[in-house]
């Protein structure tokens, strides 16, 4: 499993290195965005479970992530490379472009009753939905979580927790304050919403 994913990423990454300069040269937004589709999906369904949905994601959030990838505040080899060549206007344009697309349905299973209950209790302790809003739809710079790829959610929450994803210390604090079993339930719940 891990191996397969690794190769998928590597080949995609290679594709991207070639694509990066293409993105920088690209004129129209469609051309710029074409590079992204090889991983984030032609129809918004990512090509790997560890790649997040960006179609229909909140615009402000998308922009800030690209900004952080470019600055290196959020570390990910692939995305750091891609964002490096993007200017502020490109990032804003790409964010607006993807935010305007419809959110795809990954048809992930609904969480079990036990997970739902545990997720709701965890939510009431730190108030995830005070920021991510009702039904975890997000707004502005707060991302939508509902229906996001399960494995990506698990990966990124684990990285918040470990500090590996360091571009939002607030989320790191909250992920650390939430016990791992609660986060697991939360991931299942959010993916299945």
């Amino acid at each position: 499993m891990a191996v397969r994913r690794f190769t998928a990423c590597v080949s995609a990454a290679v594709l991207v290195w070639a694509g990066v300069s293409a993105a920088a040269r690209a004129d129209t937004i469609d051309e710029k965005a074409a590079v992204c589709s090889s991983c984030h999906g032609e129809k918004g369904v990512p090509t790997d479970k560890n790649i997040p949905i960006i179609w229909g994601q909140q615009e402000g959030y998308l922009y800030l992530q690209l900004r952080d990838f470019k600055k290196g505040a959020r570390k990910n080899e692939i995305m750091n490379g891609i964002a490096e060549s993007l200017e502020k206007d490109d990032m804003k344009e790409l964010a607006a472009y993807f935010a305007a697309k419809p959110w795809p349905n990954l048809n992930q299973a609904s969480a079990s009753d036990a997970d739902v209950l545990q997720a709701k209790t965890a939510n009431s302790a730190v108030g995830c939905s005070a920021c991510h809003l009702d039904r975890f739809q997000g707004t502005g710079t707060v991302p939508r979580l509902s229906g996001q790829s399960h494995d990506y959610l698990a990966k990124t929450l684990a990285e918040f927790r470990s500090g590996e994803r360091a571009n939002n210390p607030g989320m790191t604090s909250l992920a650390q304050a939430t016990p791992e079993p609660d986060l697991k339930a939360m991931e299942a719940y959010l993916a299945g919403l």
Binding site: K71, P169, G170, S173, A177
Partner: peptide, 23 residues
């Protein structure tokens, strides 16, 4: 009340820890 240390994150959420309701 929980405390954690992290540097200023460029206009991002910065709590320095977390408060948790005791269920």
């Amino acid at each position: 009340y929980q405390v954690q240390n992290s540097p200023y994150p460029d206009g991002k959420l910065w709590l320095g820890g977390a408060f948790k309701v005791i269920p």
